[in-house]
């Protein structure tokens, strides 16, 4: 029961290596490719959201990062050390599987004892306090708990080992709204003190909007975007023009043409000039996070290396990596 990592590292600017770094990561299965040339960084101390549709490779990525799955090719490191599946001991990396596997016939307190025995660090007091707070009965057999309570147990087991990096695969899926906010608040309260880096996957963007400070968008096994949430918000603009007008300046992530108007999701440091008062009628709006994510998930891909003309590439996925996937100026089919 030693103390966790030193506090105060959260979001420290220009600090050390990224908490997770992957380059050209690929995982091929017989039934298809889960990850294809996936490259991005997650800075240390942040709470990163990994979003993308089902089958985008979120779970595969998290399992690889946790050392459970062996990638077909590519490189990945967690907390500055290469991840080698099954060989290294991922002591400082906590992981909660999407399916939240627990021993159905064991009680909750027996799970605490078991996980305590398998870790050098274990905070029993915190685990008990958290489970009480989340209204999970300690003496209940896990098989009798609801799905939501099992998720709370799984996340608590992970938190109480005081990891420096937590990988949570869909921790909020299939939870009711009350449990969802309860678990999210508890999680935030715990990691806020310790500076733990959290990578959590979700396909519900609204859950992540207020809490996450880094966004990774996965699409078809590639990182379509990876950057701090503040940059995501400030650099994306929703430009509404006439249907037939030229694309606005900046990188077009996606365009949606209606009967009379075209709605452009544009990425640029400065917002395009809003001339909604004039004759040309260009209106610039602030998109919601959900709109930005959807734009990346629906915009057409250029494929590897196909950056836009000005080379200002959207999303610095994997700092300086040329194999960056972005949407091009083409229309949606």
């Amino acid at each position: 029961m030693t103390a966790g990592p030193l506090p105060g590292t959260r979001g420290a600017p220009g600090s050390d290596a990224p908490a997770v770094k992957c380059r050209a990561l690929a995982k091929h299965y017989l039934r298809g490719d889960a990850l294809v040339d996936c490259s991005f960084d997650v800075p240390a101390g942040c709470l990163a959201a990994l979003v993308g549709p089902n089958g985008a490779g979120k779970s595969t990525f998290l399992r690889i990062a946790a050392g459970l799955t062996r990638p077909t090719s590519g490189y990945i490191e967690a907390l500055g050390e290469p991840v080698l599946s099954g060989r290294t001991v991922p002591v400082r990396v906590g992981y909660v599987d999407q399916l939240r596997p627990l021993y159905r016939r064991l009680r909750v307190d027996e799970h605490l004892r078991m996980v305590a025995a398998m870790n050098q660090q274990w905070d029993q007091a915190m685990a008990v306090r958290l489970l009480r707070q989340l209204e999970v009965p300690l003496r209940a057999r896990v098989g009798r708990l609801s799905v939501g309570q099992q998720a709370k147990v799984a996340v608590t087991l992970c938190l109480a080992t005081r990891p420096e990096l937590m990988l949570l695969d869909e921790p909020l899926a299939s939870l009711d709204p009350v449990s969802r906010s309860m678990l999210m608040r508890a999680l935030l309260a715990e990691v806020a003190e310790t500076g733990t880096t959290v990578v959590l996957s979700s396909h519900i963007v609204s859950d992540l909007d207020p809490v996450c400070d880094h966004l990774v968008i996965l699409r078809d096994g590639r990182a379509a975007l990876s950057e701090p949430m503040d940059d995501v918000r400030s650099r994306h603009h929703l430009v509404v023009t006439d249907r037939g007008s030229e694309p606005p300046p900046g990188d077009v992530v996606a365009v949606e043409r209606g009967a009379r108007q075209a709605r452009w999701m544009v990425r640029s440091d400065e917002p395009p000039a809003d001339t909604s008062g004039g004759a040309a009628g260009v209106e610039v709006l602030r998109p919601s996070l959900e709109e930005i994510v959807v734009a990346y998930l629906t915009g057409r891909h250029t494929g590897s290396g196909g950056t836009d003309g000005d080379g200002e590439g959207a999303g610095r996925a994997g700092a300086g990596d040329p194999d960056l996937v972005i949407a091009d100026k083409g229309e949606r089919a």
Partner: peptide, 9 residues
């Protein structure tokens, strides 16, 4: 997946 992501090999 639970057992193999704890602090033992």
């Amino acid at each position: 997946r639970l057992a193999w992501t704890q602090g033992i090999s």
